[in-house]
Nucleic acid binder design. Sequence first.
DNA 1: CGTTTGACGGTCC
DNA 2: CGGACCGCCAAAC
Length: 108
Amino acid sequence: MGESYFTRVFELTSKIPAGRITTYGSIADYLALGSARMVGWALNKSFGGETFVPAHRVVNRKGELSGRGHFPTPSMMQELLEQEGVIIDNNKVKDFDKHYWNPSEELA
DNA sequence: CGTTTGACGGTCC
DNA sequence: CGGACCGCCAAAC
């Protein structure tokens, strides 16, 4: 079975610790996908999967919850993050660098 | 099969 | 600091 973009993105995203966040670009860079858009594209398919993928822990470079509109409910992404102790202010992650999780440093 | 569209990111102005 | 522009690559049209 060939590993697709989906599999790699799902596995890495699932390794993000609760209460931590990372960016599309960081994932794309770590997996050498060549484009951060591929990460969002793959995560969009994650909802149909059998395994839950914590896609809410992935935000854009500015710390904005740009993917909230793709969740079952727009408020779900923010609620999940707040449940994990991440403060959301105006659709943006507060203390972004404090919660940031870099796969290249902490996982590698 | 050419064009448009993204859950993005970096540069330029 | 923010808006305009381009590069990125796969899918949808």
